[in-house]
Design a protein around this nucleic acid. Structure first.
Lengths: 211, 211
DNA sequence: CAAAAAATCCCCAATATTGGGGAGAAAAAA
DNA sequence: TTTTTTCTCCCCAATATTGGGGATTTTTTG
């Protein structure tokens, strides 16, 4: 049986969810709490396999509690359950190491399924959350190149150096060309990118994934 | 009913899956094909809501077919179903706009669930896939967090301006402070970020998502 | 409330960058 | 092969940035 600990500040929800989880024969509800300040103590006492964690709670947020838990017990799986569906919360939860993200749902079956999946080493994301994660993922990698700009090999090289924060002198050294040549290349780069300063060029280069 | 078209080169699998989908009362299987070269024609003829697409197929991969489909029919949802669980395939599929990724599974119920979720505008990821996506996501953002750097509100504002490529003078104007103040802030920013030039600061800011 | 931190401003001087020209060799394209 | 692009280099002068000192006033915090 999967040992589960629940954190949820809303009394009604906590009690109904507890009752439901306790009635499942694959889950052993080891404890349920309204406050995550005692999270580490709860872990130590109940050593759960999976923690079902609300985000919005008084005193300390579920994400903060999860960070604490993961620091001490990296093997405990944490399943976030919340009403928040905005990118910011999703992002923070994922970065903090959440093993799943379930949107609060009147249908309690999904909790069981999510807990089982997470316990088995997978992750569970509610469909809307999954869609947002995929969208975030895509926007990171799918380049948008409305204006296709061609930089020569040398120009890319120089731009690459600029991104690394190198000065003209350092670039000249690194590329084994004269200072004045670097100057020329950068003039051309600025012309092509329609910018007129190094920071702008760097931002544009990163945005367009030119380098 | 959800109109579905299936692409799967394995005859046995295609037929058993077809039969299963056809027996569902929420799904209308509009067609099933062993070859994705006719994908666009299939879309035009059967105008499905959801396409269930294998990756590994002769002549043209499911991902390539999906790219073609998405180009012409961006509203058609594509659900990838495959045996591949490696990061490379997952990554490519997501970047190409997949709405879901189901690992081939002897239990056909998950297909129905995935199709319904995708059709409703969400995404469906098999637990192992979701775990890998979350891991990829984390590794992108969490890596450069060991040094937690705190910038003040003003400093973030100034840094934000620098990222936009503004000069000291422009920043002074935009933030309604004196040139010398901008200078001071930037000196502090450089100190905090351990850099000594604008391009470096900009790169670091973007990397650390400080702004 | 007192201390610390943040935000605001100033001076000066060294260095770096940018923009304007121009020009010759090497490589790639027509 | 001729033409064009790329890569290379130089000069000069204007402007911008950086680093080193400060100092004052708000806010925040202990």
């Amino acid at each position: 049986m999967i040992r589960v600990v629940l954190f949820e500040d809303n009394k009604n929800l906590r009690e109904s969810l507890s009752m439901y989880l306790a009635s499942s024969d694959s889950i052993w509800l080891a404890g349920s709490f309204s406050d995550a300040r005692n999270a580490l103590w709860a872990m130590k006492t109940h050593h759960p396999d999976v923690v079902l964690m609300d985000i919005q709670m008084p005193h300390i947020t579920g994400i903060e509690a999860m960070i604490d838990i993961k620091k001490v017990y990296p093997n405990i799986k944490v399943l976030i359950q919340t009403v928040y569906e905005d990118e910011d919360h999703i992002f923070k939860a994922i970065c903090a190491g959440a093993n799943g993200y379930v949107v609060k749902n009147p249908n309690p079956e999904v909790y069981i399924q999510a807990i089982e999946e997470v316990h088995a080493g997978g992750s569970h994301l509610s469909p809307n959350i999954a869609a947002k994660v995929l969208a975030m993922f895509q926007s990171q990698y799918v380049r948008i190149q409305p204006t296709f700009i061609e930089l020569t090999q040398r120009e890319k090289e120089v731009l690459g150096c600029m991104v690394k924060g190198m000065s003209y002198k350092m670039i000249a050294d690194a590329c084994d060309i004269k200072f004045s040549t670097v100057h020329s290349h950068i003039k051309n780069i600025y012309e092509k990118l329609h910018v007129n300063s190094a920071p702008e060029a760097v931002v544009k280069a990163l945005e367009m994934r030119l380098i």
